[in-house]
Write a protein that binds this DNA or RNA. Structure first.
Lengths: 143, 143
DNA sequence: CATGTTATTGCAAAAAGTTGCAATAAGAGT
DNA sequence: ACTCTTATTGCAACTTTTTGCAATAACATG
């Protein structure tokens, strides 16, 4: 069995099922090490389990995100990208060249707690992508 | 001329042009008072200027966002939604029922400055949408 | 106000993402 | 192991979003 089968009990205890499709996708996400677009995930997952289809990939990614096994993150073009859960960090993307870096979640903790007390909403813990201009591109514009 | 023509000089000074399509879309955004999905904007803009096409709507929204006249904001399903610029606030969306509230930008200022100094990136000023659970839905889960 | 440059658009076709529903298969119970 | 329930998938059709390129029209200039 693949390393992804360790998620099975977690799913079963909530009344869900572990399937080859979900294993394939979890496997892909675990080995990616970074976030991937649904299309890329589809191509890679097909190498694990060729009968998988696109609608299944989209539905599975949404399912995994709802159940905390995957993390969706927004990209600059308005689409989702997914990564395996557990890597608790955020991104800052350069709006000029697209390069990106990670940001510790710790830096956002205060804000999240402030938002909760001022808004009345709880369990605010979204994965965020911020946009700015990276050091490299700052140089090009100052010359 | 529509109220949207006040944007014309702003565009022309940067070498861009004001067109009927852009006026129609700006008009729609100004009268919406809230954010709209591209599809809705297309339908409404067609009432202003029937020859407008979908690709133009998408391209124009991206253009307006790049030039600070419109603000894209992420929705829970991974798509963009747009609103007229000038309303400087962020959103918290309930991940259960979808209700949302606005958050003053002031609350994020500190975080943005911290991100800039720790990351080296500058001009971080993205519009953000956070996800949490609203007071109403908290009740349903505590019963 | 006619002209030339080129930013912007429309068209057509492709790619990406979504939906409804019947068929399949996970896994609980026997 | 077999059966039954129903969560999950595949299929097919559909909607949304993107792309390349030729045609159009904004507007700076003379």
């Amino acid at each position: 069995m693949s390393c992804a089968s360790e998620y099975a009990p977690q799913l079963r205890s909530r009344g869900f099922r572990m399937t080859s499709q979900r294993m394939a996708i979890l496997h892909v996400l675990r080995h990616a090490g970074t976030h991937l677009a649904p299309g890329e995930i589809y191509k890679l997952a097909r190498q694990e389990f060729p009968r998988i289809t696109e609608p299944t990939v989209y539905r599975t990614l949404e399912f995994l995100a709802e159940n905390g096994l995957a993390r969706p993150s927004h990209t600059g073009n308005g689409h989702f990208t997914y990564q395996i859960a557990g890597e608790d960090h955020h991104h800052v993307v350069c709006r000029v060249c697209g390069s990106e870096i990670e940001v510790e979640h710790q830096l956002l903790e205060n804000l999240y707690r402030t938002l909760e007390s001022t808004s009345g909403y709880v369990r605010i813990d979204s994965h965020m992508t911020f946009f700015g201009v990276c050091p490299e591109c700052q140089k090009s514009y100052s010359s």
